[in-house]
Design a protein around this nucleic acid. Structure first.
Lengths: 202, 202
DNA sequence: TTTTGAAATAGACTTTAGTCTATAAAAAGT
DNA sequence: ACTTTTTATAGACTAAAGTCTATTTCAAAA
């Protein structure tokens, strides 16, 4: 790490102050009910400082999300005793959902999805190197080796499809007004992908 | 239809003028590059008139989308000669994608998805009575009757899952910067859902 | 026909994210 | 030590969606 000058240290403090204040306000009042002006005045900073450190109001909350990706550090360990790939992926998905719900809550998740759709914004969901992808693909490959899953599939493509259908489920949970039981829906969807719709011709 | 007074007719004309102008501007310059002020001045109306007739800038474009749902009127006829449910659904999905791409284009589709995520907005995608759902479920049921598909599934639930995974694919096509071949991805995803990942134990 | 009421519209105003410019103060160069 | 450059910040300004109020004008009641 490079030696920071006094100035840079102060700047980092300002950034941190803004970040902490903002996240606290978000969780108190909800993302949409917090204005940048409010963040700035509460944290004793200025617009200039804010936009010097963050490119947008949305980006500030990406910081939180980065931190959340730490979730995946532990998860691999926890999945070790599960025997089938299907079960592993179902468990991975369910735990992830719970974690996100708890850490971010509904409204911030929705915000994340909205902003993923706005062009140019740093896009977290679309980062193919996300731990999520790495883990899913790993599990799939193991399943193929063990004979559980059809080795004809390209594990990379399937990884993308699975995560995509998970995004679809999240998306639906936001757009349907009837509250959706996310756990149930995710599991149902995954089981379907593993078993298929067709009659098994045994 | 009720007899319209002179006034109401004029109001309808104003609404129509705004609508036509707006849609034309949208397709010329893109939704995000058209302001309400511009729509209003171009169409010779006023903000008051605009918001008297539409609740938001987004809503004006929902009008277009309603019209687009006419697509489904013809599609059933076209799918008649296809023999399997799997093929029918793949074809339905592909044609729908083509139609949407042609009629709306990428940017408006993205706008639709963004706005579906904003609370309160009239939400088109989440209308369970959409022709899309009706048609998919119909095809699934036929497939179950014919013995092609496992009758144990609840066709209603599967309909939702399939459409949801389609939304996930669309969503991904918006968030990934690498251009995605939507047709290929949709087809791949659907085939997966039909066949399943597991080795078929025949 | 006159009056009253309601509905359509005009356009000023508000809100809020984001930009731009000026300034101050620290770092780097001499 | 003094000058120059860089950089963090302050805060005025812009852009654009949406709100609110006033006004007009038509329709219905008297």
């Amino acid at each position: 790490m490079p030696q920071l000058t006094n100035r840079q240290m102060k700047a980092q403090q300002t950034k941190q102050r803004i970040l902490v204040t903002a996240l606290s306000l978000f969780s108190q009042k909800g993302y949409d009910n917090v204005t940048v002006d409010e963040i700035v005045s509460t944290s004793g900073a200025s617009k200039g400082a804010f936009y010097g450190h963050f490119n947008s109001k949305y980006e500030i909350f990406l910081e939180k999300f980065k931190e959340i990706d730490n979730f995946y550090i532990h998860i691999e360990e926890e999945l070790k005793n599960i025997s089938t790939a299907e079960e592993k992926i179902v468990q991975l998905a369910l735990r992830q959902m719970d974690y996100l719900k708890e850490e971010l809550g509904d409204e911030l998740m929705r915000t994340l999805y909205i902003n993923a759709l706005t062009p140019d914004a740093h896009n977290f969901l679309a980062d193919r190197n996300r731990s999520l992808y790495v883990i899913i693909e790993q599990i799939l490959k193991e399943g193929q080796t063990s004979g559980e899953l059809d080795p004809a599939f390209n594990s990379n493509e399937i990884t993308l499809i699975i995560s995509r259908c998970m995004r679809g489920t999240l998306f639906d949970s936001f757009i349907f007004t009837e509250k959706i039981d996310l756990d149930k829906e995710i599991e149902q969807m995954l089981r379907l992908i593993f078993s298929g719709l067709k009659m098994s011709h045994q």
